[in-house]
């Protein structure tokens, strides 16, 4: 090895072995004319197989970070509506997020329905945001559609914003009594989760 160290190989870095070897392979005295073609095909095939293999094996790693089966199967949440008085609201957890359940007063429903659709950033009628015949009950995800903060307005002492619904303190989005965006940076109305009435005084979210 001392010899090798004393005389560093003169192969320059710009002349990698592959080219070197190809040149030999293409040598007319190699004795097999189809050599280079066959080797190129083989290399291509082996290379593509390797690429496919690595790609396929990457999937389990990526997919393992997607929601797991137990997370996907997470229980739905039942909410008892009986104790909620008119004008009051409760917050329940569903999939790690707050769900606002609000029992609206007649006046609040009136206000929400009086707004012309043209004035809304994300037009939706009040009727489309509640279950038929359950106009009092507004159930929305308590997550501001701007950047995910939880808006104020659930507690009687909270600021409810200029439209009597919710107000997001992070960046000043105002929602009305139908949970629709009226002012501020948020682009969309508060989302409505999947839910159904399991009885007159009970809902199941999810």
């Amino acid at each position: 090895m001392a010899d090798v160290l004393a005389n560093p190989p003169k192969t320059s870095p710009s002349e990698p072995g592959s080219r070197h070897a190809d040149a030999v392979g293409a040598h007319p005295h190699g004795g097999h004319e189809e050599g280079p073609v066959r080797r190129d095909f083989l290399k291509l095939a082996a290379g593509s197989f390797t690429a496919v293999g690595v790609g396929v094996m990457a999937w389990p790693f990526i997919h393992s970070m997607n929601p797991s089966q137990d997370v996907l199967a997470l229980a739905s949440t039942d909410v008892e509506l009986g104790p909620i008085a008119e004008g009051q609201a409760v917050t329940v957890m569903w999939r790690g997020k707050p769900v606002f359940v609000r029992r609206r007063t007649a006046q609040e429903i009136q206000e929400a329905r009086a707004v012309p659709l043209g004035e809304l950033r994300d037009p939706a009628t009040d009727q489309s945001r509640v279950k038929p015949g359950k106009d009092q009950w507004l159930i929305v995800l308590g997550v501001c559609t701007h950047l995910g903060c939880v808006p104020l307005g659930q507690k009687p002492t909270d600021a409810r914003g200029d439209y009597g619904g919710w107000f997001c303190p992070c960046h000043g989005s105002h929602y009305d009594t139908a949970g629709r965006i009226r002012r501020g940076p948020a682009p969309l109305n508060l989302a409505i989760p999947d839910y159904s009435f399991t009885s007159d005084t009970r809902i199941r979210v999810g």
Partner: peptide, 20 residues
């Protein structure tokens, strides 16, 4: 099955490369 095919290909390339 996949690795066997890939192994065969790799071995063929190896033999080709070393042939000279």
């Amino acid at each position: 099955i996949f690795l066997t095919i890939l192994g065969g290909l790799a071995y063929a390339v190896k033999r080709k490369v070393w042939a000279d």
